[in-house]
């Protein structure tokens, strides 16, 4: 059943994006050609437009997921969706996975866009594919910069990438489903916005509380000329009062600064714990909301 739900969403996306994909490709190709051939002003312009398009891809994919979630579950289309022989959990997961497919597609397109942008640059200043190779080398070496193994580093990057999607899905599915529920549905689209506003404020407050109360930190330390990092179960707040003396720190070098802070800085990871907790909460809560819709 979930497979069929995903397939339906994917077909919907495909119909909606029928024109977007050729337009995006056209933008990238024109940027590559115009910038690569050093066409004055037009080349720069095309390059900037292509970069903006690339940067916007992932946000647009997330927004499209949100719109599809709303349209398919709370507009006239909901009369079809909610009378299909599927359970609320299947609807929830179906939308989660179909949105994820879109997110993956957007990520791939973004990477291609980045490569094209760098290549266009390279062609323009004569370094050609060398520029792309340099970029790959730089990107590939980031775990070394903070002395973690590539496996850990890249796993961390993938987890962040996954969390961005999961969290945004958890947030919009929660806000829309609660905002379109029994009590708030009379305000129309205002309901979800109201819920989001409250969520946002609550999230800020709890985020701060997490920083104060959750003992989980990423510790960056500077030992004998090398930056090292590890995850420790220490509250980041212990350092906070010292970080407060920024005036003094401004006059110090990085090494001195770290020494001044006792040899390390702790970045709070409590926010991630909260994020995961919210994702889990949203799954159960939203699923329950989907099981008792009120279409008016």
């Amino acid at each position: 059943m979930i497979k069929k739900l995903i397939a339906l969403d994917v077909r919907t996306y495909r119909a909606q994006l029928k024109w977007a994909i050729p337009i995006y490709l056209l933008l990238q190709i024109s940027a590559l050609v115009l910038k690569g051939l050093n066409i004055p002003s037009l080349g720069g312009f095309a390059h900037v437009i292509a970069i903006i398009a690339t940067v916007l891809l992932i946000p647009i994919a997330l927004l499209l997921g949100l719109i599809n979630y709303y349209r398919s579950l709370y507009t006239n289309q909901a009369y079809l969706t909610h009378t299909l022989p599927a359970t609320p959990g299947q609807h929830y997961l179906g939308k989660l996975f179909s949105g994820f497919i879109l997110y993956v597609t957007a990520t791939i397109a973004t990477l291609i866009g980045v490569i094209i942008a760098v290549l266009a640059w390279g062609l323009a200043d004569g370094s050609g594919f060398q520029a792309v190779a340099t970029m790959f080398r730089l990107i590939g070496s980031w775990p070394d910069l903070i002395t973690i193994t590539p496996v850990v580093g890249w796993s961390f990057a993938v987890i962040i990438w996954l969390l961005i999607y999961l969290n945004s899905y958890a947030v919009y599915s929660f806000c829309i489903s609660l905002g379109m529920g029994r009590r708030l549905s009379r305000y129309g689209v205002g309901g979800p916005f109201l819920v989001y506003l409250i969520y946002y404020i609550a999230n800020q407050v709890i985020g701060l509380a997490a920083f104060v109360f959750i003992p989980l930190s990423l510790r960056i330390s500077y030992v004998s000329g090398a930056i090292q990092s590890k995850i420790v179960t220490v509250m980041p707040i212990r350092q906070l009062w010292r970080v407060g003396f920024t005036d003094q720190m401004n006059n110090m070098g990085f090494e001195e600064g770290i020494d001044y802070l006792g040899g390390h800085i702790d970045f709070g990871l409590g926010i991630f714990v909260l994020m995961i907790a919210f994702i889990i909460f949203s799954y159960f809560f939203t699923k329950r909301q989907l099981g008792r819709v009120n279409l008016r």
Partner: peptide
Amino acid sequence: AHALISYLPENTYLGDWM
């Protein structure tokens, strides 16, 4: 019970791209 019921709502419900 949705598998047992065929339902025609007041408004049309298919996506307009279909």
